[in-house]
Design a protein around this nucleic acid. Structure first.
Lengths: 103, 103
DNA sequence: GATGAATATTCCCTTTCTCGTATATAGCTG
DNA sequence: CAGCTATATACGAGAAAGGGAATATTCATC
């Protein structure tokens, strides 16, 4: 949890996740789309990897990075108890679903 | 957004928010419940205040801290596009509400 | 106005992050 | 296996963060 927040505190890393949400990508593509140095991107990717926010796959000499949603789901869960503070809509939703589950 | 993530990366600060979710509290109460030094707690509170995650109210010589949910709501919104990656339940919910809104 | 309680701020030290530049590794291709 | 491409790591510098100890501020009370 702590790790996930710290990792996401970096704008560049959030941008990387945004790109990977659209589609998985090799490092070079991230470099050109982000406008950062290649070592810089690699380093951010290492941090994201260690936090399990992304995973790598080798394709010849390229490394294809893809999103791993688990830590984001944890973050979402952490947010849960706070949601009632702003979300009427979600409350209604949950009420509805709860009723649906216990007929 | 960046600020919110950075602030929440500190476990002590998340604990403070957890306590304030239950009820607003003076600093002294936070100090005893967290087991941290008073200056330490005050410093975390300053950071939380600057990120607008909490607000202060004076009550005699005490300062009562309370939660301000806005930055958490922003975080929730940031998470939105990623949610489909893990949440079937939420998708169902949104579908339901969307239909409800456009009868 | 002095005292005491509650809270904030400052200073100093150590650690951690980020960035740039340079260098290393891994794997294809001829 | 030489050379090229794609990616990763190492190193050094500078900024920022966290924690402890000491000090300052604020307000109520006597």
């Amino acid at each position: 949890m702590t790790a996930a927040f710290a990792v996401l505190a970096e704008p560049a890393r959030r941008r990387i996740l945004g790109l990977l949400l659209v589609a998985e990508r090799p490092v070079g593509e991230l470099v050109s789309e982000l406008g950062l140095s290649q070592p810089g991107v690699s380093k951010h990717l290492r941090v994201l990897r260690e936090a399990e926010l992304v995973e790598v796959r080798r394709d010849a000499q390229q490394r294809i990075y893809a999103l791993r949603p688990e830590p984001l789901a944890e973050l979402d869960a952490w947010l849960e108890p706070y949601r009632r503070l702003w979300s009427r809509r979600l409350d209604a939703l949950e009420d509805h679903l709860d009723k649906e589950q216990t007929p």
